[in-house]
């Protein structure tokens, strides 16, 4: 893949523009996950494993339906099951397909110190190029959604690619293709927003007054969006952050601290250099040696 796709709009730890002659003139892409339509069958998890040739370790039951219990270098997507008792006293099963959100302003990419280990394509997909990954884990530190995982085997970072390989040849992501209820759809971001609006209207007519689209602006919007029955309380969905954004500390660390840090180092060295040029070295001359000798002699005479 590398850069020959010619549609790289952002590349981690680089200061110059990347090959980006090819744009996304049909519009940026998005995957829409309609939580209200999901039945938790995990077909998408299986499709992801199949297409990407991933096999997580067989674990053990942890007492709930989440299986595997967490994302990993081998599990790039995962259904998270939450039982919610609504104010009417009814049980709602909120099942959210977790995975990379493909932020327009990706915290992982901002944090990554290795040139080209993380790229963003013109169509909005955020992809890891593992050949450049050094395994430092800064992407984990930068991500507002707790998505990237570092493999214990090869120390590379992995996450959902939004099937960038399939999308680049005009196919939808594997999870989208397989979903039996049509809960996952894929297309241009605009189309998906429109589709979501219809779904939300429908949900509202069925009594979900707070239904809405999850496309958080704190990270510039995402290329994976959710239709939520309770868009006013995203935390209900296994801790989906209500207002995700790149942490201010990460912003400071990866922003102003870099030029300031280098400036401080250069300034310190420059002051030293100028001091040497301007004022000059502090030398011990023959007079000092003489004075030392004289003092020693006096000292000797005093202490016979």
């Amino acid at each position: 893949m590398a850069l020959q796709s010619l549609d790289i709009i952002r590349r981690s730890a680089t200061t110059l523009p990347e090959p980006q002659a090819r744009g996304a003139h049909a519009g940026q892409v998005a995957k829409l996950i309609d939580v209200s339509k999901c039945i938790g069958c995990k077909a998408c998890q299986v499709a992801c494993m199949e297409w990407n040739d991933l096999r997580d370790e067989i674990g053990s039951c942890t007492g709930h339906y989440d299986n595997p219990p967490d994302l990993s270098d081998q599990s790039w997507t995962l259904m998270r099951f939450a039982e919610y008792e609504n104010p009417k006293g009814d049980l709602e099963w909120l099942i959210r397909k977790d995975g990379c959100m493909h932020c327009a302003d990706p915290g992982c990419l901002k944090a990554c110190p290795s040139p080209g280990a993380i790229v963003q394509y013109a169509n909005g997909i955020v992809d890891f190029h593992e050949e450049n990954c050094i395994g430092c884990g800064y992407c984990v530190t930068g991500c507002p959604f707790n998505i990237p995982r570092i493999s214990k085997k090869d120390n590379k970072a992995y996450k959902c690619t939004l099937c960038s390989d399939r999308v680049s040849v005009g196919l939808e992501p594997a999870c989208v293709k397989t979903c039996p209820t049509g809960a996952i759809t894929f297309g241009s971001k605009e189309d998906m927003q429109q589709h979501a609006a219809e779904r939300i209207e429908d949900l509202k007519s069925r009594g979900f007054a707070q239904a809405g689209l999850y496309d958080p602006m704190g990270v510039g919007g995402t290329h994976v969006m959710y239709v939520l029955q309770h868009a006013d309380q995203p935390q209900l969905y296994s801790g989906l952050p209500a207002n995700p954004k790149i942490s201010a500390i990460v912003g400071l660390w990866k922003g102003i601290s870099k030029p300031l840090g280098l400036l401080a180092i250069f300034a310190t060295a420059a002051v030293g250099f100028l001091h040497y040029i301007g004022i000059g070295p502090n030398e011990t001359d023959e007079q000092d040696e003489e004075a030392a000798r004289r003092e020693l002699k006096n000292e000797l005479e005093k202490t016979p």
Partner: peptide
């Protein structure tokens, strides 16, 4: 570097009487 005669303290281990006095 600035205070001449200092580097020797860490390379050879010694300084001159004059250096110490000054």
């Amino acid at each position: 570097i600035w205070v001449k005669g200092s580097v020797r303290a860490m390379t050879r281990g010694t300084v001159s009487y004059g250096w110490a006095w000054k």
